[in-house]
Design a protein around this nucleic acid. Sequence first.
DNA 1: TAAAAAATCCCCTAAAAAGAGGAGTAGAAA
DNA 2: TTTCTACTCCTCTTTTTAGGGGATTTTTTA
Lengths: 205, 205
Amino acid sequence: MKTKVFIVDDHSMVIEGIKSMLQNEPHIEWTGHADNAESCLSFLQLHVPHVILMDINLPDKSGLDLCKEVILKYPTIKIIGLSSFNQLSFISKMLENGASGYLLKNASKPEILLAIETVMTRKKYLSLEASEMMKKKDVEDAPTLTRREIEVLQLISEGYTNSEMSEKLFVSVTTIDTHRKHLLSKFNAKNTAALIHLATQMKFI
Amino acid sequence: MKTKVFIVDDHSMVIEGIKSMLQNEPHIEWTGHADNAESCLSFLQLHVPHVILMDINLPDKSGLDLCKEVILKYPTIKIIGLSSFNQLSFISKMLENGASGYLLKNASKPEILLAIETVMTRKKYLSLEASEMMKKKDVEDAPTLTRREIEVLQLISEGYTNSEMSEKLFVSVTTIDTHRKHLLSKFNAKNTAALIHLATQMKFI
DNA sequence: TAAAAAATCCCCTAAAAAGAGGAGTAGAAA
DNA sequence: TTTCTACTCCTCTTTTTAGGGGATTTTTTA
């Protein structure tokens, strides 16, 4: 079965570029294109593709809103967000709004084909660059920890209590307590639970 | 410039399959194949390809060792590990030994092309399945949580105390306490810190 | 519809963590 | 040489969590 692909983008260059890449692919059927949200929606009333490659910046409506709308009306359609920018906020919003994938506009032919193939099997596809972005997320505002703090943090996450740590590290319980307080304030965490959650997400542990 | 690709695998079916997929690709030059480590190494003395697709299980030597050896002698060569198994230990060892990528033998044509393209630009490529594996790790022994438990778990990780949660969820503090106890026992965690650490790693939160 | 699972509520005690202070020492960097 | 940072140690009080029970009422689901 051929995968029916549709594209919405207001730059004809992008449309032509991708079209020429996909045109001769045996497993792809090019169903058409639209250069704005309005005409995309009217096309969908006549014909429902499997996959829509959707620009995030459209003239009449943001791709984010269009994405939400399309998914609501046609839940089977897989949407792959297209953008020139590798901005985290775009990527995550697009996925929140129901998109199955995200590609940069300079994506290569094999990458586009892989993305289409991947979303068709009910999986998500993020471009390498995009998934890198998703990974780092909060690494920006990660605090700077001292050697001892990292050590204590690690032990806390393993379930050690203060007194157990003090024995393990040959220091007083109050010392451990101090490190712990410093960790809480550096991470701006209300308590241990929040601390460990943040620290784990930020890959400290 | 064409990318010179070489393959080492003792199954001729795999070689033929991949060869037929890559043969007519304009950017790929098929330089040949070997069915064991020995003949691979002697081929490399005559001709250095850009990319080697390397099986992990070879008759005379493990792909892991061959990988290390090739990288040592020819540091410019990019190696993509091939395996039928999606085993975490293989994947990580292959990468430790200098490989630039990892593909399952049932990889599709676009995925192979993308992998080659990706490693050629000095980046790493892991198959979707492989990178999923790298992510989830311990998901196997993840406990089954109830709706309420997940809800409470989430709030704990955000730093809520029992009394705060009881207000938020309109239940008694003792109820929250019970959910908490169940969480600790389900995760086999000694305390909240260990609980949140495990739950975060297992992507519950 | 009956049994199982989930969610709710309660008791008690002990242990651990949080919050608020202050303070001395060794070593590195300015 | 001074200043800064990391590491260490302390007291005291309050809050929160853990560990041990037990019990009732809704929902699921077989």
